Simulated scan of single mutants.
Amino acid sequence: MSFLMAVSVSACGADSPQAEQSAPKPAQTSPAEAAAPTPDYPTKQIEYIVPYSAGGGVDLVARATADYLSKEWGQPIVVVNKAGGGGAVGAEYALKQAKPDGYTALAVNVSNTTMLTAGMLNSPVKNEDQIYTTRIGKGTLAFAVKADAPWKDFAEFSQWVKVNPEQLTWTSVGPAGFSAFGVAEWLDAIGADFSKTRMIVTKGASDSVPKVAGGHAILAVHTVGEIMPMLQAGKVKILAVSGKERSPFLPDVPTAEESGMKGLTVFWWTGVSFAKGTPDYVVTKWQDAIAKMEKDPAFAKKLTDIQVESAYANREDFNQDVIRETEYYTELATKKNMRK
């Protein structure tokens, strides 16, 4: 305590008349306010908006979550697919058009949050429009080409792209999509000209990977789980996965780092968010229920079956991660002239 402050406190001590007159009186809380119960929730059907087509990773995780919570709460949680705009159409509906009463949840994803904000100068959906409630799962980024593509490994493919960037076609839900940032980061690492490559817009992984399998695009960059069905059918092959560690679902596939490309950090995640203004008791109930859900063996098996790794984060940690990601992806998008 400073000298001046000490004098001031001494001069207006607890025994002085001045202290009695100026001291604030403690706020009085009525017994009714103190005992106010948390409203019942949910008491009716909840719409769980997936802003992508059915069959992709976000959709599959949302359906597994909806199934668990419907049984947990005794109320139906209905998954509604609203694809379009790189995830923006469904996100706008959930965050700006529906009432913020807890009965419209958004299956939030890296593509329609941090990447959308970074990829668009005036994003229709911003971080401040929503309450990031919980992250549920994450997925390793994988680079897939047609099964009979001529490249024997990722290093050879990367060298070909570096020399022939104008011949590379790759799929994405839009310029701010997960695939776009995965491709941009990879091309930056190998020194290839991103601006000379060509993006083919799709509705999501369930549309994107078949295009590569059919020879309509050269590269699809999605999660291991999203590519797995076409991989198992022998229609595509995965040349590498991102990150420093191999995917637990594809232990025989090398990482990009093993192929000489360091610094590939883009990864996929999905979770739940609500519109700003949604009551705290709703957010807390979802956060606590999902924390319990992640420990449920049956739910864990569902994630494993779709090749998604558990990645629970509570509201506070989720928000901090979103802030860091937004900064990184904005720098990458600016560097590659991706911001539109």
Rank of each mutant, 00 (worst) to 15 (best):
I218Q: 09
S10A: 12
A14F: 01
G87T: 03
V125C: 05
D288Y: 05
A27C: 11
Q45N: 10
G182R: 00
G86T: 02
V201F: 00
N337S: 14
Q159K: 15
A94N: 07
E128W: 05
R339F: 08
E331C: 02
T197D: 08
T202Y: 09
G84P: 04
K82N: 01
V241S: 03
L60R: 05
K285G: 14
V253H: 04
K276P: 11
T38F: 11
F249M: 07
S172A: 09
L69E: 13
S16F: 11
V125N: 10
D101K: 06
P251A: 08
G90I: 04
T326C: 04
A91K: 00
S158D: 01
A192R: 03
T114K: 01
P251M: 09
R63A: 12
P210T: 05
K237P: 01
Y41D: 11
S111Q: 13
N122W: 10
A64G: 11
V61T: 15
A14E: 06
S242W: 04
D252F: 12
A32L: 07
G55I: 05
G263P: 04
K82W: 00
V212T: 07
T140D: 15
K126F: 12
P297K: 04
T140R: 08
G13Y: 00
A180G: 00
K196L: 06
T278V: 08
D15T: 13
F274L: 14
P175Q: 06
R63F: 04
T197Y: 07
Q287M: 14
